[in-house]
């Protein structure tokens, strides 16, 4: 049996063993009557995750290295937070662990060069949605009566069919990840770099604000010259590799035909090329969002509006003030009105 065959058999096996171990860990960590050794379960699950990472290491492409520490840290935090979230008997803690997962996820987003989404995730999810969850959890939790030691409901403290559910879940996981072990190339370097020309060219104001005055002061650009724009799209012509930008004489009334001959590439000196002139993630995302999915934004707006209305209608409390209370209210209002 040569090495390749060994590898190809070990990887799925390794994965399946890891899944089994992970499932065992999750089952152990599940809340139940009596002891629920979440720590042991967590360790087992972490071991499983480690096995998977080992498997992934074995299938990495030639010359590719290990992912760095941050990836591992964020992945472990995210998965551990998720594990603890689904196993913690107290809803408030579960929600807090979910916030941990969210923050770790946003770390992964950062690694994936999705800076905007990373922070949006923290703001929207951890900041808004989870706080709503916490509110509702607090609103909908019964206060403990005398017989109970703490405010822990039965339905919180015991999991339902932990073995069957966990088995099903991990079988699914194993199946989903089997394909992963066929290997893919490493992530491309510097996302958006290839397209930053285009992004920059789509943001003329930014370039002009930064460059036009500087270039004129440095007398690299004549006063009668401006940046050339492509006739059909109105975009600038920028070469980020060669650091050049196409300049053209300012359009004079009635002399449009002669422009072509006097167009020239202006080389921008190193110190004048500001860092922020590269297209950023937010700009790229904004262009993508508004340029290619405008209708979807509208639909999302409508969905949010409907959700808002729906939630208002659903949660409206049927306030049934008693007559006396009403009268009291009216008296109070009357007194305030007189003031």
């Amino acid at each position: 049996m040569d090495a390749a065959t060994l590898e190809s058999t070990i990887h799925p096996l390794l994965l399946y063993v890891a899944c089994a171990v992970g499932a065992l860990g999750v089952i152990i960590a599940m809340p139940r009557k009596g002891v629920s050794p979440a720590l042991i379960g967590g360790v087992l699950a972490a071991a499983a995750a480690g096995m998977v990472i080992m498997g992934l290491l074995l299938t990495r492409p030639e010359g590719a290295g290990m992912p760095n520490l941050f990836f591992h840290a964020f992945a472990i935090l995210a998965l551990g937070g998720g594990l603890r979230m689904i196993t913690h008997p107290k809803p408030v803690y579960a929600a807090l662990y979910f916030i941990l997962t969210i923050i770790a996820s946003s770390g992964l987003y950062l690694l994936l060069s999705a800076e905007f989404m990373a922070f949006a995730l923290i703001i929207i999810y951890a900041g808004a949605i989870l706080i709503t969850y916490l509110f509702v959890i607090m609103l909908a939790t019964q206060s403990p009566d005398e017989t109970q030691d703490e405010a822990l409901s039965v339905y919180d403290s015991t999991a339902r069919e932990p073995i069957a559910a966990t088995t099903a879940g991990f079988v699914l996981l194993a199946l989903l990840t089997t394909m992963l072990f066929r290997g893919t190339g490493g992530l491309p370097i510097r996302p958006g770099l290839d397209s930053s020309d285009a992004i920059l060219a789509s943001l003329p104001g930014k370039v002009e604000d930064a460059l036009l005055r500087d270039l004129r002061e440095a007398e690299l650009l004549d006063e009668s010259e401006g940046f050339a724009r492509m006739g059909d799209t109105g975009k600038l012509v920028i070469d980020t590799e060669a650091r050049t930008i196409l300049a053209a004489p300012l359009v004079i009334e009635g002399a449009a035909d002669e422009i072509v001959e006097t167009n020239r590439y202006v080389e921008v000196p190193e110190e004048m090329w500001p860092e922020e002139l590269e297209g950023t993630n937010v700009e790229a995302l904004g262009l993508n969002l508004l340029g290619e999915h405008p209708m979807t934004i509208e639909i999302a707006g409508i969905v949010l509006l409907m959700a808002m209305l729906g939630a208002t209608v659903l949660a409206r409390k049927q306030v049934d003030l008693e007559e006396e209370a009403k009268a009291r209210q009216q008296r109070r209002l009357a007194v305030e009105g007189r003031r």
């Binding site: 992934l56 590719a64 879940g169 893919t184």
Partner: peptide, 29 residues
Amino acid sequence: MGAATLNHYLFVSAAMFALGLIGFMTRRN
């Protein structure tokens, strides 16, 4: 980040999904 492959992220994603699924099936709250 060049060293991490797509598979790493997909694995984290799949595992997270599976955890969510298991949680949905086991928790009664």
